[in-house]
């Protein structure tokens, strides 16, 4: 009997089990994940565009989009059928624990590059689920939290206006007037700077302005502090931001509802709200 014949007769697992693979799962290509298969389009050029986002390849992402635009593919389709699908897959793999924070950040960059390119052709901002204004408290340089929030919001289909770090209250109010956001996020790492959140609310009230909710979070920020003033909701994790925004847009939830139904809205156990 030949070697190949012998080999084909065997049930390998009867002889040796690769327990590392049993436990961790076999390495598969991200697009072969059973759920991702349903997200990534099969039709070109959208597939290539989505895959470039999934593979966190900024250059390829940009090149694919440019090529598609040159071939007169509608920019809206490139965004919705390509770039966003790629990002949906990335978010999904993130919740599955297959992708990590840096994957999201890199893939998000690739997606944003592509969207910018499309918007150039479009001549205006693309349609999103809504606009969100994100800022870091005045006097606070720590913006990692805000950057994550912005990234999750964009991945979730929102236009996130990134105001940067150390943003004076007057500027926040001005931005809210201008963009009429459906949601505002404020972050602070230092206890000395988180005190501006109630001041932002006060300033808005003075001008007779209201937003559905201001999500406040970050290092030193705590729920009881945030709930000591109106219009606010304590945000626990950066990736909760688009879910809160969804609840506002789809179900017309207010900041009061968000406080009450937080865990349901974000769809997981949240010890701070239990």
């Amino acid at each position: 009997m030949s070697y190949e014949e012998l080999e084909n007769k065997m049930d390998q697992t009867f002889i040796a089990v690769r327990y590392n693979v049993e436990i961790e799962g076999a390495a598969i290509k991200p697009e072969e994940d059973l759920d991702v298969v349903n997200i990534i389009p099969t039709e070109e050029p959208f597939r290539a565009i989505a895959l470039a986002v999934l593979y966190e390849d900024r250059d390829a992402s940009l090149a694919n989009v440019e090529k598609a635009l040159a071939n007169d593919i509608p920019p809206i389709d490139i965004i919705n059928k390509g770039l966003m699908k790629g990002m949906d897959a990335v978010s999904l793999l993130y919740t599955k624990g297959f992708y990590f924070l840096p994957d999201l950040m890199l893939a998000g960059d690739g997606m944003m590059e592509g969207i910018k390119e499309c918007e150039k052709v479009l001549g205006h901002k693309s349609e999103t689920k809504g606009t969100v204004v994100s800022f870091v408290a005045e006097g606070d340089p720590h913006d990692i939290g805000k950057n994550l929030v912005v990234m999750f919001l964009r991945a979730g289909g929102y236009e996130a206006i990134d105001m940067g770090r150390d943003v004076p209250t007057v500027d926040v109010v001005k931005a809210i007037k201008e963009h009429k956001p459906i949601f505002v996020t404020g972050t602070a790492l230092m206890t000395t700077t988180m005190t501006v959140f109630p001041k932002v609310v006060e300033a808005l009230q003075k001008e007779g302005l209201e937003v559905p909710a201001i999500g406040c979070g970050g290092g030193a920020v705590r729920k009881d502090f945030v709930e000591s003033f109106p219009m606010s909701v304590y945000g626990v994790e950066a990736y909760h931001a688009p879910k809160l925004a969804d609840a506002i847009v789809k179900d017309k939830k207010t900041w009061k509802d968000l406080r009450k139904e937080y865990a349901d809205i974000v769809g997981e156990f949240v010890s701070e709200y239990s």
Binding site: E138, G139, D140, R165, D166, P168, T192
Partner: peptide, 11 residues
């Protein structure tokens, strides 16, 4: 020492 950047100090 409590705030970073120029905004608060100026204000």
């Amino acid at each position: 020492l409590a705030y970073w950047g120029d905004n608060v100090l100026k204000r």
